[in-house]
């Protein structure tokens, strides 16, 4: 019995000496660190706070001028108005029209560009053809040219193709402009996969598409998520192409938002503007939150070998 007690005592003594040195939660270092972080967070959150609060107030309350104070009387009227009845020039059906336009632009653009770019990257890594390196260099060079330079030629090209001012034309433009960066992304990812895997699949009798769908695709889910986020946010937030290549009936949400906010007749309805802005930003935000973890993994996977 006595020996057991001493054993335990010895064990305790040993255990106490082990492990990292305990830190106090409220050490000066922690107070400084977290204090700074909290101040920074508040600073960045302030505009969002103002937006949310303003969008929940009625116009009379906004005229009082206390932009930081919470609403005395919460109303969702501005949100409803921003969505369905705010006026842009002649039509008064709010952002809803722009939302559906944006969906119709974003979904096909994202899907087509990711499919084409992933096949591009796969072919550039595993099925090198004569001049494939030159092809890739030219493609990458394309990503360094400012978009503005290509706007006017693009307008002419679309006009000649009969696509100017249509949704299809804008989808085509987004697909083409997404190609350099997405191809680079996929090429780097596929070249980080072991080459012997590809060889083994060829010995096993799988062809170009067989290897792509059965071997490469299942291994590159994180990369597809990265591409998805990049494309959804990029295309959803696009304003320039939307305003240049489409007509008012099919303006994307961002252009619609701009028109609502900048419309000059009548009083400035700050609450409606705030609500409209947040509605527009909701889609990329949801994509981030839903796939953030995979996004980080994909970025890290691509970063190992470039």
């Amino acid at each position: 019995m006595a020996s057991i007690t001493t054993n335990i005592a010895a064990h305790d003594a040993q255990g106490a000496a082990r492990g990292p040195k305990p830190r106090r939660a409220l050490s000066p270092r922690n107070i400084m660190l977290y204090g700074t972080l909290i101040v920074m967070c508040l600073y960045y959150l302030l505009p969002l706070w103002v937006m949310v609060m303003t969008s929940l107030k009625g116009m009379p309350e906004i005229r009082l001028g206390n932009i930081f104070s919470p609403p005395l009387e919460i109303t969702f009227e501005p949100w409803v108005k921003a969505w369905s009845t705010a006026c842009t020039g002649l039509n008064c059906d709010g952002l809803s029209r722009g939302f559906w336009n944006s969906v119709q632009i974003t979904v096909p653009s994202v899907i087509i560009s990711i499919i084409v770019a992933s096949v591009n990257g796969y072919a550039l890594v595993n099925w090198k053809f004569k001049g494939s390196e030159v092809f890739f260099t030219i493609l990458i060079f394309g990503s360094f040219i400012p978009y503005q330079i290509m706007l006017y030629p693009m307008v002419i090209l679309l006009r000649e193709a009969g696509l100017y001012g249509s949704l299809g034309g804008l989808v085509l433009v987004h697909t083409i402009f997404g190609m350099p960066i997405l191809t680079l992304l996929f090429r780097n990812y596929f070249s980080s996969l072991p080459e012997e895997l590809f060889k083994a699949a060829r010995v096993d009798g799988a062809g170009f598409w067989g290897i792509y769908f059965r071997i490469m695709l299942p291994m590159s889910l994180p990369m597809f998520v990265v591409a998805l986020i990049l494309q959804v946010t990029g295309i959803w937030n696009d304003f320039l192409f939307g305003v240049v290549f489409t007509k008012p009936e099919i303006y994307p949400m961002t252009v619609q938002l701009n028109n609502i906010v900048n419309s000059v007749q009548g009083v400035k309805e700050y609450n409606v503007n705030m609500a409209a802005t947040m509605l527009t930003g909701l889609v990329p935000l949801i994509i981030y939150f839903a796939s953030g973890k995979l996004f980080v993994r994909g970025i890290a996977a691509g970063a190992v070998k470039g």
Partner: peptide, 13 residues
Amino acid sequence: IGMVFQSYALYPQ
């Protein structure tokens, strides 16, 4: 032919 590779090259999924 059948081939065996240095890095095994097994399909991970």
